[in-house]
């Protein structure tokens, strides 16, 4: 069934001489994120001359390009920004991509929630007035949405944590948090891709490398993916770590 209006309704502004940002909404919402992921795919399948790549935000998709290639292209418009804007609007108007066929990739992340790795598991449980097992159960039960990758290489902004687990950040941040640490900060949960300082409440650790500059896709997760955590014991963790 076709509709008169495009499913992609966005505002557009220049981010730099060689990038524009499309705004798809004003609040963090799963349908908006799904639209962004779909438009990203649509554009990657139908690139314009000079197109370099996209960066997803919570409600935005930024599109990077080579201005010289855009300027010398046959696209309609008086300057680079107009040419790109015009192309993106006509792409969205003529979109034949069927949203119902879009299935996000689901990634299962093994996490070891034992004391050696879940440094703040007790604190999170106490704060939530739950047992440690209940915390693990609530954390592994949800399907999380990857809204965006940002902050440091491979860091995923995840949505969908059970609000009963919400815990304030640590009063004193740790000078070092191990790569792979799984934490909670307020209503967010996330995984540290690199060893960095950090103030999140650490509830476990994944043996998988969230970021590896030797891989062709260095970040394990991408915007639009879905994530589920799976509890593993120490032996399984050690085996997967190799």
């Amino acid at each position: 069934m076709s509709t008169l209006f495009s499913e992609f309704d966005f505002k557009i502004y220049p981010l730099s001489e060689q990038a524009v940002t499309l705004t798809f909404g004003s609040e963090i919402a799963e349908p908006t994120a799904a639209k962004i992921a779909r438009f990203n795919l649509l554009l990657e399948a139908n690139p314009f001359p000079g197109f370099k790549g996209c960066v997803a935000g919570y409600t935005t998709l930024s599109i990077f390009y080579n201005l010289l290639e855009v300027s010398s292209s046959e696209l309609c418009g008086d300057n680079g920004f107009e040419k790109v804007s015009h192309y993106l609007k006509s792409l969205s108007d003529n979109s034949k991509l069927d949203g119902r066929n879009f299935t996000p990739k689901r990634i299962v992340l093994p996490v070891c929630y034992v004391a050696d790795y879940g440094l703040d598991l007790d604190e999170v449980a106490r704060n939530a007035k739950l047992s440690v097992d209940e915390v693990i159960d609530l954390h592994t039960r949800q399907i999380y949405k990857v809204y965006m990758i940002g902050f440091v290489p491979g860091f995923a902004y995840l949505g969908g944590m059970d609000e009963r687990l919400a815990t304030a950040r640590k009063l004193v941040p740790r000078a070092k948090v191990a790569a792979g640490s799984v934490g909670i900060a307020g209503k967010q949960t996330g995984i540290y891709p690199l060893e960095t300082p950090g103030g999140w409440q650490i509830i476990g650790q994944t043996p998988l490398k969230m970021f590896d500059s030797d891989r062709s896709q260095p970040s394990l997760l991408k915007a639009g993916d879905e994530v589920q955590f799976k509890s593993v014991n120490l032996e399984e963790f050690k085996a997967l770590e190799k």
């Binding site: 790549g53 940002g150 896709q217 970040s219």
Partner: peptide
């Protein structure tokens, strides 16, 4: 390094 912005590589 221009091709990995989507993966938060500066």
């Amino acid at each position: 390094r221009k091709n990995y912005l989507a993966q938060a590589v500066p």
